[in-house]
Structure formats: C-alpha cells, structure tokens
Amino acid sequence: MKGYEYHKPSTVKEAIDLMGSLENAKFIAGGTDVMVLIRQKKLSPAHLISLRNISDLSFMETANGFFIGGGVTHSEIVGNEFIQKHYSALSDAAGNIGSKQIRNVATLCGNICNAAPSADSACPLLVLDAKVLIAGPDKEREIALDDFFLGPNRTALEKGEMVKGFHMPPFNENTGSTYIKHTRRAAMDLPILGIAARVTIKIGGSQIGCKDAFCTIDTISNILKHLEGEDLVCEDVRIAMGVVSPKPIRAKKAEAALLGKVVSEKLFEEIAEIAASEAQPRDSIRGEAWYRRDMIKVLTKRALLKSIDRVIRPDDLIHPDRLW
C-alpha cells in the first residue's frame, strides 16, 4: 500500500494553503468515513490534512441565531441544551447517528460534506434554513444548504475550499422542529427514510395560554381537535426528506400548500400526500420504493404533529419519547 503523509494545521488558512500546495490531498475531520474508505481502498490520498486541531472550527455560539463550527462533533451537538430547545430537529438527528464511539469523533461538517442522500443531519439543517460558510483560497462565501448539495457525494465546494461552519437564523418561540429517522434497528443503522419538519404557528383568536394548558398525557391529535376553534395558523413551514432522491430535498409544494392554513390532522394527511408525490425514491437494500413512498405519508404527518406538539408542550423536550 502506498502511504500518505499526515498534516496537522492549526488554522483554517494553513489548512487551505496546504490543500492548494499538495497533490492528491484530502481533508479529514473525524475520519469515520475517510479512514473506512482508505481501508476499503476506495480512496488513496497522498496527503491527509487533519482539521481536528483547528480551534476556529470547534466552537458553537449564539450569534443572531446559532453558529456551529465545522469541527463540532455530534456528541457536542447532542449535549447542547440550546440546540435541543431551539433547534430540536438537529438534536434529534445528531443523537441517532452511528454509535456513541462514532458520535464522539464524527463532525457535522463531515456528515454534510460527504453529501450522502441518507445524511441524517442534512434534513434538519435544511428545515432550519442553515447557511453554509465556506472558506476558500481567495475568499469566504456563504450559500444556502439547499444549493450546497448537487447529487450523491457531490457538493458545491470548489477545489481547495472547505466548510467553516453552519449558521441557522433565530426562530420565534412558537416554532417547533423534528427529525424522524426510519430504521430497522434502533442504533447503528442508516435510515430507510428521514423526514424533518419545522412549523411556526400563530395562535390566533383568544389568547389560550396554550403553553401550559396541556400538560396532560393526551395525544397531540386530540389536543388539536380541542383547539379547532382557536385557529392555529401555520405561519412558516419547512419539510425536508432524505433518501428519497439523489440528494436531500425540500418538499416545496407541500410547504406551499400548508402555509397560511389553519392546522389540523386532516390537513396534514393531505400535505403528506403532496410530499410523497414530490419524492423519487428507489429500490435499495434498505427498502423498496413503494414502501418508502408510503412511509413518507406516515412520517411527514407525524413529523408535523410532533413539531406542533413541541410548540404547545415544550416540556415534551424533557420527556421526548412520552408519546412518540
């Protein structure tokens, strides 16, 4: 086996300069994908440029929303209460990737830059309107995550560029988000299907003080029925689907059909039908196309309901699996 040189830059600039000056070089962050590919001989770089020791990449901060550095690991995301509360969908996803050992080293940036159609963190970041901050040899730029994915394992990163981090805007307090990963096993599995949703609702009509009114163990379906007269209007919505097309996509028609409407379980069923019609799933070893399409209908509705549940009963975050 031909070997590789291992480089450990300590700044973003050093890393980019190295990438520019070396032939056949590859960035490595947590290495949970790169090391496997090398072992499988699917990748044989002459140089590995490690991003693990760059302090500029490994921080998170509350800054007009939230910024997550490229080198932040999934374990760090799961352990962050602010993300759990305000960007719940991302927390859902980060906690379900691989195993504890994988999450302790694998980075968010690695999961996104790999651009697998099944990347778990892609759907949550899509519904959370994340922007990707990209550093290159000459300049920095920021693009929407939706424009970042081009196809399986292909991204908008140009030669010599790297991802510095992700920025998510702030959302108002009546916002809830969810990611549902559909798998055969509870751990160490890739999704058959991944669905993320974010809903902002406007509580119209009388002020029902609905935040605390429903600390019951009633199902969200029943609660929505009770609230029928209250005109819970959907002010903003995002739905994203993974593993249903060559890249993670948003169900834009479904989003448009829900925007501005009074939410109800029946409406969600219609929305889920539209979302399923926007997907182009295919047969694979993990699931067949017809099954995936059927499950989009089930899970889209469930993700929307769960997001609204999280708005109405924020304590759901304390007992996340009480009803789901």
Binding site: I28, M35, S50, R52, Q101
Partner: peptide, 11 residues
C-alpha cells in the same frame, strides 16, 4: 469512548 480502528495514530 472512540473506535481505535478509525483513529489516525498521529492524532
């Protein structure tokens, strides 16, 4: 806890 089989020795 990490998987040592994926951990580059230089790190």
């Amino acid at each position: 806890a990490v998987n040592s089989c994926l951990y580059p020795v230089m790190e």
